[in-house]
């Protein structure tokens, strides 16, 4: 589904990603972990096409297509979704109309029927149950005045509406209490299918108790230092990141 080869990227001339290799197949769940400032959020933004980052080398294929030849909105319509760490607020634009426009853009790209406001109303009322969101949030302005948790709930609602092939979730757990984390974690699990993949970006292993990854990668200094199965998350929880960094430095291993 996603194949990243020797990807390098910089922001304002400063290199942030220094050669990333990663393969994600359909049905897999990958977790990218690492200390703050390691470049893990950058990886998500580069894949999603954030304009502030410059891709300086490497290649990324998404479903066999050259990702960097597609505009950000094209990538989204092709099935690449990013759940934001800090979703923005947009006054005056109702959440429901934003969700419907996003849904219809994707439907249009896939040659499916677009939904009129009434049809969408039925559709979205089913979807909000999945994330246990209250109806009133549909009529409110997009993310405006939402708490941190409500914003994250809204991100997963958007994921449920768009049903992406690959969802990159950037720090889904930040700003969430235990109960909300469980609800959203369960929702993400229910959305996962054999033809879809997940890339979870997180600092804390806690979220990986609910969304269990097949692979865990430790990213630091713009490189993946270690990749292993889900047991690595537990080890990181117990021992922190330093031992991975030290082992990597001592072995010169990469």
């Amino acid at each position: 589904m996603l194949s990243i080869k020797n990807l390098t990227a910089s922001i304002n001339g400063t290199p942030v990603l220094k050669g990333i290799d990663l393969d994600i197949k359909a049905g897999e769940i990958h977790a990218i972990m690492g200390p703050n400032g390691s470049g893990k959020s950058t990886l998500g933004k580069v894949l999603a096409g954030h304009p502030a980052y410059e891709v300086t080398g490497g290649e990324v294929l998404f479903e066999g297509r050259d990702l960097f030849r597609m505009a950000a909105d094209e990538r989204a319509r092709a099935g690449l979704f990013m759940g934001f760490q800090h979703p923005i607020e947009v006054p005056g634009v109702s959440n429901a109309s934003f969700l419907r426009l996003a849904y219809n853009k994707k439907a249009e790209a896939e040659g499916r029927d677009e939904l009129d406001p009434l049809e969408f109303d039925d559709f979205i009322h089913e979807k909000i149950k999945l994330v246990a969101m209250r109806e009133e949030f549909l009529d409110r302005s997009l993310n405006e005045g939402f708490s941190g948790g409500e914003k994250k709930r809204n991100e997963i609602l958007q994921m449920a509406v768009l049903e992406p092939k690959l969802a990159i979730l950037d720090e889904l757990d930040s700003g969430l209490d235990i109960d909300a984390l469980r609800v959203l974690g369960d929702a993400v699990n229910r959305l996962q299918r054999a033809d879809r993949a997940l890339l979870i970006i997180t600092h804390f292993p806690r979220i990986l108790e609910t969304i269990q990854p097949d692979y865990v990668h430790v990213l630091s200094g713009g490189r993946i230092l270690k990749s292993a199965g889900k047991e690595l998350a537990l080890e990181l929880e117990e021992r922190g990141y330093d031992w991975v960094l030290e082992a990597s430095a001592a072995g010169g291993a990469r």
């Binding site: 999603a48 950000a72 934003f98 996003a102 958007q158």
Partner: peptide
């Protein structure tokens, strides 16, 4: 700004 536009574009909505 870029952040607002990027958010919309990331949901498949052209600029």
């Amino acid at each position: 700004g870029e952040e607002q536009l990027f958010y919309f574009q990331q949901r498949g909505i052209p600029a």
